[in-house]
Design a protein around this nucleic acid. Structure first.
Length: 578
DNA sequence: GCCGTTTTCGGCCCGACTGTTTTCAGTCG
């Protein structure tokens, strides 16, 4: 784990434990803010001295000293003291929806509960209902929340949430009262995983009936909250969906608010306060006379605060507000900028569609070029041979003519455990584009894995490192390697890093993209398509790139073919050095 | 604990919903 993540986790734990101990809520917020700031800070924390740490927004002298202590000794004394006071299991209870620090503290002090099993036992014995502020209903809700947490657990991939949300949006849009509807929250920010789905609707007449309709839709399993303007339900598949209904006149303010992130909104509202204004989901108001300044249009809210409209994919309080104030927001890459897909498989290896179908699909996407990159022989189950590859290559000129799209011949090479690649250098030199990826031996040491990736990056003919961390959302953790060493080498050797758009990969992720950018790395946003329909996944890859602040010019597959070919030539004109 | 062309002290985003309350605390996003 990167030192920034370790530090952020320690600060977050500090915040949680102070909160449970009944400490000053503002101190809690300070540590939470510092945790977020540290996690999102581009430079490695270990490379910063005390002044460098204090230069991080939301990190002051106290936190800086704690971070230095953590680096030097491996722990923070203040945190150790809290550990002595707060039982280890108590913090985990904060993960239960509806159970916050106050009540966690209460059940610990009054009933001695400090773990999930103890809490379940107390629920079973109906002890909680007798506590001050509790009743039978709170007890039942808590039991339900625990059950739901255990059933549903984590987050779902972006693509799954987007499917559900688009379906619900279409259904609710059909109601005559609903004049506008869209999804908001982390879905609109296009995070790679989604916890729950936030929907926003505008209805001036009879908003209550919209709520009624929403709460009684067939896919609703149970209703968690049902108010006149805000409701939460859990679908039969265990996905929580929140719907908020507002008057059309406040659409922009409400959309801004419900898109978040929470951290971004706090920053924006602080700006408003400093300007003598107040921002809520109902609009931007002047404090002294309550005059409404903006509400219908999201861009107007930002404009009234002296900011350009900030794209939702940037709204994480990771420097976008400062950049907006300085008019330095990046000109983000868009789906329409993508000129071709450079990672596509066919049924020659493990794809489902034939070569002709895949090329035709790429042409239908309006691409000017695409690359066919079937697997190579080291992936033995793919049964690839040199002859098969050459035969495939021989068919490409005809396809280019027929579909009006330049078809590049490539291959997805396997990076062996020792960093070796498929085929000999002479044959490799004959491809237009080479993607190299790790497909096995994920558990190597950090040193071995770094060496392995560097070997592929340093190879004179490798153009793109495919799905660099090999993570699979919810199934396989990322491999461990020296990120900065690898990114630095990629930038130096003009080797692109892939932003793999396949929904359960999204690899590299937004944080790593941003860090790679700082090293001057360029990217290839590719779908790794194994079927015709997979080409549509490009939107998810573009979202990751946007969340990593990437501009179109930093993505090689937005470039005109001539420029792309110059990049792909890499060092093919030089004799291999090994 | 952090931060400052309002401030080195005194603020710190804002509102909805729930369940428990006779006016509000806790939690969430």
């Amino acid at each position: 784990m990167r030192s920034n993540d370790t530090a952020a986790e320690a600060l977050q734990e500090l915040a949680d434990l102070i909160a449970i101990s009944g400490g000053d809520p503002y101190r809690v917020r300070s540590y939470e803010k510092a945790a977020r700031a540290v996690a999102g800070w581009p430079a490695d924390l270990d490379s910063l001295d005390r002044n460098g740490l204090i230069a991080i927004p939301a990190v002051g002298a106290h936190t800086a000293d704690k971070l230095l202590e953590l680096r030097k000794t491996g722990h923070i004394a203040a945190l150790e003291e809290l550990h002595a006071q707060v039982p280890a299991g108590l913090r985990a209870l904060l993960g239960i929806p509806g159970l916050g620090p106050k009540r966690a503290h209460q059940v610990y002090v009054e009933l001695g509960i400090s773990s999930m099993p103890q809490l379940l036992a107390a629920l079973h014995d109906e002890q909680l209902r007798h506590l001050k502020g509790w009743g039978q209903i709170s007890e039942r809700n808590l039991a339900r929340a625990i059950r739901q947490m255990q059933e549903v657990g984590g987050r779902m991939p972006l693509a799954v949430a987007l499917d559900i949300a688009e379906d619900l949006v279409a259904q609710l849009a059909a109601l005559p009262q609903v004049t506008r509807i869209d999804y908001a929250g982390s879905l609109r920010r296009m995070r790679d995983t989604i916890g729950d789905i936030d929907l926003l609707a505008a209805a001036d007449e009879d908003p209550g009936s919209v709520m009624e309709h929403f709460c009684t839709m067939p896919l609703v399993d149970r209703v968690l909250a049902h108010g006149p303007t805000k409701s939460s339900v859990v679908t039969t598949k265990g996905v929580q969906v929140d719907l908020r209904v507002v008057p059309a006149a406040v659409w922009g303010a409400a959309l801004q608010y419900f898109t978040g992130s929470k951290a971004h909104n706090i920053r924006i509202r602080e700006l408003a306060v400093h300007a003598g204004l107040k921002l809520s989901e109902y609009g931007l108001f002047r404090v002294d006379d309550g005059q409404l300044l903006a509400s219908a249009d999201e861009a107007d809210i930002y404009a009234r605060l002296g900011l350009p409209w900030i794209p939702p994919t940037l709204r994480e309080d990771r420097g976008e507000v400062e950049a907006a104030l300085d008019d330095q927001l990046p000109d983000l890459v868009e789906v329409t900028d993508i000129a071709g897909d450079l990672h596509m498989h066919t049924d020659l290896t493990d794809g489902l569609a034939g070569l002709d179908d895949m090329v035709a699909a790429a042409a239908r996407h309006g691409y000017r070029y695409c690359a066919i990159t079937d697997h190579a022989p080291m992936m033995a189950m793919q049964r690839m041979t040199r002859d098969k590859a050459l035969h495939q290559r021989s068919k490409l000129p005809e396809l280019t003519r027929r579909h009006g799209i330049t078809v590049l011949h490539g291959s997805e090479l396997n990076i062996g455990a020792d960093g070796s690649l498929d085929w000999d250098d002479q044959f490799l030199a004959s491809f237009d584009v080479l993607v190299a990826s790790v497909h096995s031996d994920f558990d190597q040491s950090r040193e071995e894995m770094t060496k392995r990736l560097l070997a592929a990056i340093e190879h004179p003919y490798v153009n793109i490192i495919g799905h660099p961390t090999t993570r699979l959302l919810g199934r396989r953790p990322p491999i461990d390697f020296d990120v900065d060493a690898v990114f630095k080498a990629a930038a130096r050797t003009h080797t692109a890093l892939e932003i793999n758009a396949f929904p359960d990969r999204l690899d590299i992720n937004d944080d790593l993209v941003r860090r790679a950018r700082d090293h001057g790395v360029v990217f290839a946003i590719d779908t790794d398509s194994h079927a015709v329909g997979h080409l549509d996944y490009i939107r998810y890859g573009v979202a990751v790139a946007q969340r990593g602040w990437v501009a179109a010019d930093e993505v090689i597959n937005t470039w005109p073919l001539k420029r792309l070919r110059r990049f792909l030539a890499k060092r093919r004109h030089c004799p291999p050095t090994h």
